[in-house]
Amino acid sequence: MSIQHFRVALIPFFAAFCLPVFAHPETLVKVKDAEDQLGARVGYIELDLNSGKILESFRPEERFPMMSTFKVLLCGAVLSRVDAGQEQLGRRIHYSQNDLVEYSPVTEKHLTDGMTVRELCSAAITMSDNTAANLLLTTIGGPKELTAFLHNMGDHVTRLDRWEPELNEAIPNDERDTTMPAAMATTLRKLLTGELLTLASRQQLIDWMEADKVAGPLLRSALPAGWFIADKSGAGERGSRGIIAALGPDGKPSRIVVIYTTGSQATMDERNRQIAEIGASLIKHW
């Protein structure tokens, strides 16, 4: 067993022997301040990774656009098919120029040779490549099948209805392509620590998230040296922004954090800054 596999296998073990965790309302004060600064709703939840206990939450059962955070769930569904012998990570998928959609920095470079399922998941999570996500959605049967996968996990809230990039439209009061912070946090925890996926697939999923290259201005910008984070960000229309993450000190994750916002007129930089400040408060009061 590799060191990384050992780390993920012992996530519940280490967490069980940690000192009790206590909620700190100071972080919620910052979440509410972010709402004021952005002029928009902000949803927040913080779960203990081992027990699933909610440590703090704000608007945990209000719907927010998922945006690209759905790509972690998508690759979880792909990995479940791999575990069941219905898919192979090494299978190569070929596609054409007509398949390319807006923001496809990886797939646009491989029109000639195609990409493997493993490479597509890596591109979808680490670079948020939209064509990679659409190609992977095709392998599982489309958005409705991802929703069905989530329902089978016990998540009857999260739903995907459309493809990239239309799913980022974020129309107010439109339930399409949305989740709730509580539902997303619980589902992410199941994917990373539950028995739904094999140990190898859980490790692969967290490795992809740990290698995320496009979430630097968010929670990662607030992390002290030595902290662990595996995350996936999302951005959408109407001032929408979000991030889902597993993080913790001492090089291992111990909490799940989900943050979503929508309806702001603020710039992307300002949305990023507010999420980073929430992260800084979380870490300060850990």
Rank of each mutant, 00 (worst) to 15 (best):
A16C: 13
G263W: 04
G194V: 07
R202C: 06
L188A: 08
D33H: 15
I140V: 09
K190I: 08
M1F: 02
E61P: 01
S254F: 08
L111M: 13
V8E: 10
L120V: 05
L89I: 07
M268R: 07
G52T: 05
A84C: 11
E35P: 01
K232R: 06
T198D: 10
T198G: 12
L160F: 10
P224A: 05
L146Q: 04
P253Y: 10
E87M: 12
M115I: 07
L219N: 03
R92Y: 10
T186M: 15
Q203R: 14
R241C: 04
K53S: 10
R7A: 10
P65A: 06
Q86E: 12
A235S: 08
A84D: 12
K284V: 10
L79F: 04
G234A: 10
I54V: 15
K213C: 12
E35Q: 08
G76T: 07
I11R: 05
T198W: 04
S122G: 13
D269C: 11
I140N: 04
R162Q: 08
D33Y: 14
K71Y: 00
L55R: 09
T112K: 15
A183G: 07
L191D: 00
E108I: 11
N272F: 02
C75Y: 00
G216M: 10
I45G: 03
M209A: 04
S80L: 11
L47N: 03
L19S: 15
R162S: 10
G242F: 00
L100V: 10
K190H: 13
L19D: 10
G194W: 08
L188Q: 03
T179D: 00
N272C: 04
E270T: 14
A148H: 13
D231G: 04
F149D: 05
T267H: 12
R63G: 04
G239V: 01
G226W: 06
G234I: 00
A222T: 14
L197N: 05
A133T: 12
E270Y: 07
A276D: 05
E195V: 07
I275P: 00
P181Q: 00
D161I: 04
G236D: 04
Y44C: 03
R238L: 10
D48E: 12
H94L: 13
Q97L: 14
R271Q: 10
D83E: 10
P217N: 12
A148S: 15
V78A: 06
L136K: 00
Y95K: 01
A276H: 14
F14N: 02
Y260G: 00
C121Y: 00
F64W: 03
T116F: 04
L10Y: 09
S57G: 11
A245I: 02
E26Q: 10
F13E: 02
G142F: 01
T187R: 01
W163V: 13
G141D: 06
F22G: 10
G263T: 05
E61D: 15
Y260W: 02
K32N: 10
A34V: 11
L150A: 08
D48F: 03
K232P: 00
L150H: 04
L47H: 03
A230P: 00
P253Q: 08
D231T: 04
S104R: 03
T186Y: 13
T27P: 06
